[in-house]
Amino acid sequence: MDSSAWGLLIQGAWTTLWISGISIAIGVVMGLLIALLRVAKIPVLHQLLGVYISLARATPLVTLVLFIFLTAPTMGINLNRNVAGIIALTLNTTAFNAEIWRSAFNNFSKEQREAALAIGMTPWVYFRRIMLPQITITSLPGLVNEMSFLIKGSPAIAVIGVVDLTRVTNRISAVTYDPLPPILAAAVLYMLIISLLVWLQRLAERKASRLAV
């Protein structure tokens, strides 16, 4: 593989990273919002969100990407490939993140709320200053784990022609006629990205276990 092939590969890796990065950022926040709405158990909305989560968890990313990219034009929306990819990845990861946040909420001790209200905190201050920081720490290992899963699922966007780290190997081998080296090189780059996340997950776990004591 020559330097132009490596250049393409790095571009592919960058595409994978920024598209996944945006989806992860939106997905973590949206997941928190959905978890809050679900914990509030608002009738109808609770059930609707439940159906969304169940559907999103059961739908393959490839299928979701195709669905969004092909359906949008029929509704008169012109979607750019990258945006379609981001929407699909976000819809997917949000559902998983919502469940991670929700389980942290459900496992949070009720006594702290009483203690906070007893010293005169308003519910909002209690949520922002006491509950959220702790829940973020306990959720973090799960959230980082889900980030790894999202990166591993991100090649799905190749199906609509986004040239990510997986699809770029086709492009390189179209010139070199030898697909094996770029595929192996892409595999190594994926391993680097995922191992970084695994390392972060371990850090997060250590932090979370300190909180548990």
Binding site: G153, P155, A158, T166, I183, A187, Y190, I194, S195
Partner: peptide
């Protein structure tokens, strides 16, 4: 540490 698709690529392409 690998995406599934890259393994499928490896075997098929």
């Amino acid at each position: 540490m690998l995406p599934f698709l890259i393994l499928a690529y490896l075997l098929y392409y």
